[in-house]
Each structure stands twice: as C-alpha cells, then as structure tokens.
Design a protein around this nucleic acid. Structure first.
Lengths: 220, 220
DNA sequence: ACCTGCCATGAATCGTGGTTCACAGTTTTG
DNA sequence: CAAAACTGTGAACCACGATTCATGGCAGGT
C-alpha cells in the first residue's frame, strides 16, 4: 500500500466540489439552466472541463445536487419562518412571504430550478425542488385547517397552486417587479394577500395578517 | 414568362403549410417542445425535412406561428365563454374554468407553450401565448372590479398569478389530476374556487358561482 | 411536346455541448 | 528518493439536431 487520502487532501477535494456547485449555481442564477454548461462552470471554478467529471459522473448529477442543495436551503428558510410565527395562522403568511422574498432575491435561479425547462432528465431532477417547496406549504396549510383557520380543502392542490401563483406573479416573464426594493416589497405583500385569500381567509382578515407579518427584506 | 402560380397550387401549398403546423402541434402535445424537431415533424406531415424550410425559414418561426395560433384559439375560447355569461361576476368563473378545462384537455401542449423551456429565442416567442391568456383574464378582472364585485387590486398581477396557479395545479409536475374525467372535473372546480377566492370573493359566494357555472367538459 | 422555372428531396454539412482518455503532475508511503 | 496511487488537464471524440444545397421532378405556358 502506498497511498491513502490525507485529511488535507480530502478537504481540498471537498472544497473543489463546493466550488463546482457554487459555480453552477452562479451560472444558473445568471443565465438560467442553459448557462449551466460544463465548460463555463469549469472555467468559473478555475479547473479544466475534464476535472468536473472527477466530481460528478454527468452533468445531470451536478444539476441534481444543485437542486437538492437549493431545495434544502429554501424549505429550511420557510420552515424556520413558519415556526417562528406565533400560531398556525400567522405561520402561513410567514412561509409564503419567505418563499416570495427569497425567490425574488434570486429570481433567475428560482426560475431555472422551478420552471425553466430542459432535457427530460434534468427536468425530473428539478421535481425535487418544486416538491420540497410545495410540501412545506402543504404542511402549513394542513395545520391551519386543523386549527380551524381555513375551510377544508385539498391541501396538496392548494399548495401547488400557490407555488404557481407566486412564481408566476413574482418572477414569471410577465412579472413587472423591478429590482426596486419598494416595488418588490409591494409585490410580495400583494401576492401574499392574494395567496391568503385563495386559501379562504377573508380579505379584511388577510390584510391584517399581511401587515402583521413583518415582511422585512432581510438578508440571510 | 412561363410559370405563374395557379390557384390550385396555392391551395396545395397552404394545405401543406397547415399540415406542418398541425404536425408540430401534435408533436408538442405529445412530447413537449423537445419533440418539435424538424425531422419528426416533417415525417408526420409526410414530407422531407428540407421541405419544411420552404415554408418556415427556421424552426423558431414555426414555433412562433404555432404559439400564435394556439394563443388565438385559447383566448378566443375564453372570451366567448366570458361573454356568454350573464354578468361580469359570473364571467370570471366562466373564463377561468374554460381555460382550465381546455388546458387539461391538451395539457402537454399547454405546458409546452406556457412553461416548458427551450432556447432563449423560442422562449421569447412563447410570451405571446402567456400574455394573451393573462390579458384575457385581466380584462375580466377589471370589469368585475368596476362593477364592484371585487376589491380593488392590481389586475395584471392577479391575472398572472392566477395563470400560474391554474397551470401549476392542473398540469404542473405535481398535479395529480389523472385522465379520469371525474377527477379532472373536480380539479377544475377546486381550482376555479380557489381562483375566485384569490380575487377576493368570499368562500360561500364563490362556491355558489362555481356551482352555477355549468363547467361541462364540453368539446370544442 | 418542350422549355422554364418553382417544388420537393434527403444526404451531407455544421455547430454545439457533453463526455472520454492518454498523459502530466501531485501526494503518500517505504 | 522511487514506486504507487490518485488527481488534473484539455484536446479529441461523439451524438444530436438544425440547416443547406445539388439534384430530380412537376406544373405552366407556348
């Protein structure tokens, strides 16, 4: 035996792997999925194209991992926000607005992960992200129903619909929300309100909840 | 001078052009945008690949025309349904449900036209479709607001959000709506209800409207 | 019938981007 | 320091799909 991977080397490898993922993420947030190409990503990570394949067997795997990472981060943020809320009712706007704000901050990435298409393989992979977001919402909707804050409804369907509404309203090609923070904030509020009403909370009440929810454009 | 295009020939050319468009539409509804490839489309239209280029200078143009045609058809259907309604309030569920039902009937096509991505060029072209649908809804929303049936709101934003909600709920990758007509019908109703609530109609009233609206799974 | 163009054809060409691989450079161990 | 095992490189390879074009027909006019 003549070689065993040292701790130091392991760290370097891990760092490089991260660099690749980060580069991919950057690319996606800049030019969408089509920009996630091996050569450019490699360049950004300051390695050779071939090297990428030492870390990921195929591009699909790279994208898959990217989707997983982003999905975890985003749903964690939503969960955190929801759990910080005083009750299941106010947890709803908290989760919704959190998703909305974060989506707005990295809109191209969100769009790429959620909606922008690609080859079938990659598409399948993105399901992960979509699902984790929807599931997070679904959980909150269920809780609110159980507590009697919402009329009975198909929570999964409502959750999916809300994801669609938020994405389309905020970052879809029709979205006007500029980079202007004031406008963004307004858009988030408007859509949160719309989402709450969609779930069956009457307008007046929903407005109250939206106002209550701080909706700060906080940084991570 | 020795040749002038005859009426008969013109007709044949037009027919062939239509055949190509139809083939493309078929392909899109079957395998999404990636299936809209020159060779397969040509084969379906029973012509050679090269011939397609006699009718459309580039694939993008073909897709563009397809998008235009579909957009016109769909928004016309929505308009028709809305105008047949007794008033601006019931025009809303009519337009919404019409879109929903038709989207469901040709889900892959709708998805391809609306959400599935592709190269930037084609993407730009699809905007036509998206916009025409959203605009149709927007018109109805405005009317309902003017008549005092809805609270004041950003009609364009609401319209975009609704398109997103409907698409995501009905034909998104998370949608469960099977081909089972009963389930489809239920999904359409559920989402129409959700959409009405989102616009600010209270649950009970919205339910009434949904029931009123025939929501038949009619054919064109 | 016979020129004169338009029309259709489909094999060949091109461009793009993922993937491979023989070779060069590093690390680890004895 | 040499051998062994691994890691990095980037040019070459491949597959795929849009687009072109030389060629073979067909229709329209004389």
């Amino acid at each position: 035996m003549a070689y065993r991977r040292t701790e130091k080397v392991s760290r370097r490898l891990a760092a490089r792997r991260d660099a690749i993922l980060t580069a991919a993420r950057f690319a996606a947030n800049e030019g969408g999925m089509e920009a996630v190409q091996i050569a450019p990503v490699a360049e950004r990570a300051v390695i050779a194209a071939g090297t990428v394949y030492r870390y990921f067997p195929a591009k699909t795997d790279l994208v898959a991992e990217l989707a997983t990472v982003v999905a975890e981060q985003e749903s964690a943020a939503m969960r955190l926000a929801a759990e910080a809320a005083p009750g299941p009712l106010s947890a709803l706007p908290a989760a919704i607005a959190t998703f909305a704000m974060r989506a707005l901050r990295a809109r191209r990435l969100t769009w790429a992960m959620l909606t922008e298409p690609v080859e079938a393989e990659v598409d399948a992979v993105r399901l992960v992200y979509r699902q984790s977001i929807a599931r997070e919402l679904e959980t909150r909707i269920r809780a609110a129903i159980n507590d009697g804050h919402l009329p009975a409804q198909d929570a999964a369907l409502s959750a999916a619909a809300l994801v669609g509404a938020l994405v389309e309203g905020l970052i879809g090609p029709l979205a006007s929300a500029a980079d202007d923070p004031a406008k963004s904030r307004l858009a988030v509020q408007t859509l949160t309100l719309l989402a709450l009403r969609a779930l069956g909370i009457v307008d007046a009440r929903a407005r109250g909840l939206v106002v209550q929810t701080a909706l700060p454009l906080a940084d991570e």
